[in-house]
């Protein structure tokens, strides 16, 4: 006891040490996240257009009320949700199927799991370029395959019209997001003890019953995490829009992320851009909390 007190006196307190150790990282995070966030709040409460310098002034919540009464907010919001819901559904369904496959034991399973990292590692911008080439209206592979099989009689410009542009946007976006969701769901599947399945088989449960009454309930915590994270990511989609559609055709893929970009960096209206970005952030956060409460309800920990 005596010895311990002496060493403590010689050394600084644990709190002091924690402060010193974490200071560099915390300072970096504060300087580039906390401070900009406060400035963003400040800007969103001001009339602040770089095209009209000298007219910056405090206008309270006017930017927000302007957006909330403007179809330029509600239409992109609807587009954002159409996109996000489509992407989350596609990602969750496909990755659930793949993870069920990878949960089976068969030679070559490890290779397949490793190759999932190929799409995962592709940057979103390169992914957009890849799909732009695959979907090219004159020479794209998707057109060529559909044509050769006989699904279409002439090549289509799928990025040129609704609803095909939204469908392909969702597919292209999901392609690089499915691998991570698959790995997470797979790790969830592997925590389910196999003797539960064995006793269910003894009790005469079929494949479907085992999936519905054992797999899905046991997978629910991990499934919730995947749905929440994919929802958060999909709501702030930007990169792929920038390269693949630029919000078009005729605003069909004008999601909020794209509106924020054009409003701020093309129209140079930093006040309006900041306030709509805050709105998107608020909606995302609210949804994440809502999903967390809703999806986690009834999960025994």
């Amino acid at each position: 006891m005596q010895i311990r007190r002496e060493t403590q006196q010689k050394e600084m307190s644990q709190g002091m040490m924690a402060l010193l150790f974490s200071a560099p990282a915390v300072l970096i995070i504060a300087a580039t996240i906390l401070v900009p966030f406060l400035i963003a709040v400040f800007l969103s409460l001001h009339n602040w257009n770089l095209k009209r310098p000298g007219r910056e002034r405090f206008i309270g919540l006017e930017n927000y009320t302007d957006w909330l009464t403007d179809s330029d907010f509600w239409e992109p919001l609807q587009t954002t949700f159409t996109f996000a819901i489509g992407a989350v559904v596609l990602i969750v369904v496909v990755s659930l199927l793949i993870s069920l496959l990878l949960n089976e034991k068969f030679p070559g399973r490890g290779v397949l799991r490793a190759l999932l990292l190929v799409p995962w590692a592709i940057p979103s911008v390169v992914n957009a370029l890849l799909w732009k080439w695959l979907l090219n209206p004159q020479y794209g592979l998707v057109n060529a395959i559909a044509f050769e099989i006989g699904i279409i009689t002439e090549y289509q410009n799928v990025l040129g019209s609704m609803p095909s542009v939204m469908i392909w946007l969702v597919i292209a976006y999901s392609w690089i997001h499915i691998p991570l969701a698959t790995l997470l769901l797979l790790s969830g599947l592997q925590t389910i003890p196999s003797d539960i399945y064995e006793s269910a088989i003894v009790d005469g449960a079929g494949v479907r019953q085992r999936f519905l009454f054992i797999t899905l309930p046991m997978l629910r915590p991990m499934l919730s995490i995947v749905i929440i994270f994919e929802m958060i990511f999909a709501l702030k989609v930007f990169d792929i829009i920038f390269v693949l559609t630029a919000g078009g055709p005729a605003d069909a893929t004008n999601v909020l992320g794209w509106t924020i970009y054009t409003e701020t960096f093309r129209k140079l209206d930093f006040g309006a851009g900041s306030s709509i970005a805050m709105l998107l952030g608020g909606i995302t956060l609210a949804l994440a909390i809502l999903f967390y409460v809703f999806l986690d309800k009834g999960v025994e920990r």
Binding site: L43, T264, A277, L280, G281, A288
Partner: peptide
């Protein structure tokens, strides 16, 4: 949790 898009504006400025 703060979306990068909302931080981008002040950071660029």
């Amino acid at each position: 949790l703060i979306p990068a898009l909302s931080l981008a504006i002040p950071i660029v400025l």
